[in-house]
């Protein structure tokens, strides 16, 4: 089936893009890589009347870092660029891991992390780590700019707090605290290039053997990426032992609310939350120690 008919615009500034989106109204979609949007348009899952291609807006295609503000990933930066960025690999390795684990090479050459977030699939690969690292997103519209904590961004499958005409312009990730280690774990039941049945992002802040702070987010096991609150609490102030990470995993599996679909059953997802949470804690701890 071919794509539904829509209009196409490629403005060169954020202001123009927002102005245009406001003017065109309902059915107008921003497009970065287009890999999710066009599939939805083809399957008529979205009613698309106009596409605003944001790839020509130069300021969106930047990765910056400073010791105060942390990491800023512009919303057209591709997953390939994230995966291979030396600074991200060094300071935010789990962000690079999640980008590298998304879809396949061609898609990563096209798609952006921002688009992955805006598409808001429960299984969005790039969400859990960003959530665990306390990321915010910058959103601009005709009425101005706002900063939204990522944990307030998702409202349901395919749903976010973005209003019609609002453009996500950047993902901001704070500088990891001293002693922090991060991890991205995922499992796809059937092959190595696959959509995740379960994914977990974690950040642990360690002081020696003791976990001072922990943030764990789970993907594909609830309508939106979710915090494993009880598991986090369990770790705080404790020495991370093999036993503790298993207990924390089990705790996380009690918190999640997976469904059965063609990719995995509810039971399997629940079990995997425990396994992957344990593995994420373990890797975070190891990375923190480095």
């Amino acid at each position: 089936m071919g794509l539904s008919r829509f209009d196409y615009y490629a403005p060169e500034t954020i202001g123009d893009a927002c102005e245009l989106a406001g003017k065109l109204g309902e059915g107008t979609m921003f497009m970065a890589g287009g890999t999710d949007l066009l599939i939805k348009a083809k399957r008529r899952l979205l009613n698309v009347s106009a596409v605003i291609d944001i790839k020509k807006i130069k300021e969106l295609n930047k990765i910056t870092f400073d010791e105060k503000e942390g990491l800023v990933i512009g919303s057209t930066v591709t997953l390939t660029e994230i995966e291979n960025h030396p600074l991200i690999k060094e300071k935010y390795p789990a962000i690079a891991d999640a980008a590298a684990a998304t879809a396949n090479v061609q898609i990563r050459n096209m798609a952006s992390a921002a688009g992955n977030l805006c598409n808001a699939a429960p299984s969005a690969e790039n969400a859990p780590v960003l959530l665990a690292m306390g990321a915010n997103v910058t959103v601009e519209g005709r009425d101005g700019k706002r900063i939204i904590p990522l944990d307030k961004f998702f409202t349901g499958p395919g749903q976010t707090v973005l209003k019609q005409g609002e453009l996500l312009t950047a993902i901001n990730v704070p500088v990891p605290p001293k002693g922090a280690g991060t991890s991205y774990q995922h499992i796809s039941a059937r092959g190595k290039v696959d959509i995740s049945s379960v994914c977990v992002g974690a950040m642990l802040v360690m002081k020696g053997d003791i976990c001072e702070d922990a943030r764990i987010f789970l993907g594909a096991v609830a309508p939106t990426p979710m915090m494993a609150k009880n598991a986090q609490e369990l770790l705080k102030g404790k020495k991370i032992t093999e036993e503790l990470l298993q207990t924390a995993g089990i705790e996380a599996s009690k918190e999640c609310k997976p469904i059965t679909d063609m990719r995995a059953s509810k039971e399997y997802r629940t079990l995997m939350v425990a396994v992957l949470t344990g593995r994420a804690i373990d890797e975070s701890r190891r990375r923190a120690a480095k």
């Binding site: 490629a10 497009m31 890589g33 287009g34 599939i39 096209m110």
Partner: peptide, 10 residues
């Protein structure tokens, strides 16, 4: 890139 998911106009 996947040419099937790329708009020609872009």
């Amino acid at each position: 890139v996947s040419s099937c998911l790329t708009l020609a106009v872009s």
